[in-house]
Design a protein around this nucleic acid. Structure first.
Ligand SMILES: [Zn+2]
Ligand SMILES: [Zn+2]
Ligand SMILES: [Zn+2]
Ligand SMILES: [Zn+2]
Lengths: 154, 154
DNA sequence: TGGTATTATTTTAAAATATACCAACACGCA
DNA sequence: TGCGTGTTGGTATATTTTAAAATAATACCA
């Protein structure tokens, strides 16, 4: 079933399955398919791109099909939403609670998740000066990734 | 014309007008109306909420009317987009180039723009560790503002 | 095993957000 | 006055997201 996933991603797939089972929530076939589509991407992917891919193997798929699965994974922290592009990306180290920041390459589309406590705390400290209590952070940087620097790609 | 704006906002309105004239771009009546609607809000405001308000004084207003004006202001840096809520907020210190971070109160909706070089540089430093060159940042914190803390509002 | 509660899926529809396109008009300038 | 560019008007459509209701599947307990 996971022929299209590399070994490391297959590990992640199984980890996600176990994670859901441990939590007592259901990693259904439909959710598995959506999750697999997300795993296949290094870039983040839009809901309708997911839908297009899902339709190939699940004829009945409709927008709510995708959004429900996404909501399920977002809730659990297995998937993050990239707000600045309305896209979604599988988290590669769920389970542990961690801050989330994205580095989004506008040249190749690659999205790299980093998890810097320093960035998180710097923003928190700054917010405290306004006596603002942060519950969640959205931190996304657009720019040029390592791979794309120095290449002629525009 | 600016009866509905407080004195400080009227100052900002005039500053924006001057700013456009200095740049050689036109602060047209339509744009002025949209800008005024933005200024009236302490919260950020969605494009279609702007449209509703604009329609009251400009019968011909349509979605493109609003988005064109917004694009104009976004380009100039007079207005920022809040990505996590798909809303827009007038900048209170345009002209100087400055980093942008938002503190968004999920209780009262208030959006406060802060401009911390520290936050910006911390993220830049962190990105450099991945050899990623940041061009733009989206930094938005959701939580509870000073006013709403300690009140019974939920 | 059957009954029951819960959760997930299907289906249809619509709301909310954003853009494409072309024609008409207005302004700045030669 | 005529030209070019930028602005607006108007229509339509694309994209993203959510609502609601009916059905189906599953988990759980007796
Ligand atoms: Zn993550
Ligand atoms: Zn790249
Ligand atoms: Zn600003
Ligand atoms: Zn508040």
């Amino acid at each position: 079933m996971n022929q299209t996933l590399s070994e490391s991603k297959e590990l992640l797939f199984n980890k996600a399955k176990d994670f859901c089972e441990d939590k007592g929530v259901r990693f259904t076939p439909l959710r598995a398919k959506v999750y697999q589509i997300l795993l296949q991407e290094d870039a983040s992917i839009g809901a309708y791109d997911i839908l297009d891919k899902l339709k190939l193997i699940e004829d009945s798929a409709k927008p709510p099909t995708v959004y429900r699965a996404l909501d399920f994974f977002l809730e659990l922290g297995l998937v993050h939403k990239v707000e600045s592009t309305n896209t979604f990306k599988a988290c590669h180290h769920f389970g542990c609670s961690h801050p989330v920041q994205f580095l989004i390459c506008d040249t190749c589309g690659d999205v790299k998740e980093i998890s810097s406590e320093g960035v998180k705390e710097t923003l928190e400290r700054q917010a405290l000066q306004s006596n603002f209590k942060i519950m969640t952070q959205t931190i996304e940087a657009h720019g040029i990734c390592n791979q794309c620097q120095g290449t002629g790609i525009s």
